[in-house]
Amino acid sequence: MTVPDRARGVIALLAENCTSCMICARECPDWCIHIESSTEQPDRDAAGRSRARARPVLERFAIDYGQCMYCGICVDACPFDALHWSPAHDYPGVDPAGSAAVVELVAERDVLAELVAQVPPPGN
């Protein structure tokens, strides 16, 4: 079976664009997105001044595919284009060996980042 190019598969994360604003997690009707972040303080000079702002650092971004209903609200709500639809259908929860073993359905940041490579460019 051939899957159309722009078919919804799983959600991919472009971590460089994520500002930990939490909009995706708040808009998710299933509450399946889990984000943890910290704030990186800028370096200060000898007088204690800094021209730079404190910036958020993404520590954890995970999606629980056992709860996700693939509605796409998180992708649409992200103002920084950090979330995308990936055409991949092989995601956590699919055991390649076909065994009946319990398989983790929570995709962490590293797995979501690998899926970005499969996202087709806009306009295709």
Rank of each mutant, 00 (worst) to 15 (best):
V116N: 01
A113P: 00
I63N: 05
E36R: 08
E59A: 14
H89I: 07
N17P: 00
S20K: 06
A7L: 00
A107S: 12
G66R: 10
C18W: 06
R49E: 15
E108P: 00
W85R: 11
C71D: 12
R26W: 08
C78I: 10
G98N: 09
D43F: 13
A117C: 00
V94K: 13
G93P: 04
R6S: 09
C78S: 12
E16M: 01
A113W: 06
G93R: 10
L115N: 00
C32K: 10
A82S: 14
V3P: 00
C71T: 08
P96E: 09
P96D: 05
D5K: 03
Y65R: 04
W85K: 10
R49D: 15
A82K: 11
A54Q: 11
G48L: 06
G66C: 10
H89C: 05
P96C: 05
A7D: 03
P96A: 07
P4E: 07
A77T: 14
P56L: 11
A88P: 00
C24L: 02
E36S: 12
G98Q: 13
G93L: 10
G123F: 05
A117R: 04
G72N: 06
S50G: 14
S86M: 03
R49L: 15
L112I: 07
D90I: 09
G48V: 08
A62I: 04
P87V: 13
A25T: 06
D30G: 09
D90F: 10
I11Y: 06
H89N: 04
P92L: 04
S38I: 02
M22V: 04
A15E: 04
D45L: 11
G72F: 08
T39M: 12
A117Y: 00
G72M: 07
E27D: 04
E27H: 02
H89P: 00
A12Q: 02
Y70A: 15
R44P: 03
C68G: 10
P122L: 08
S37R: 01
E114D: 06
M1H: 00
I11H: 07
R60T: 14
Q41N: 13
M22C: 04
R53M: 09
V119H: 05
A107L: 08
A12I: 02
C28S: 04
E108W: 01
I11C: 03
R49P: 01
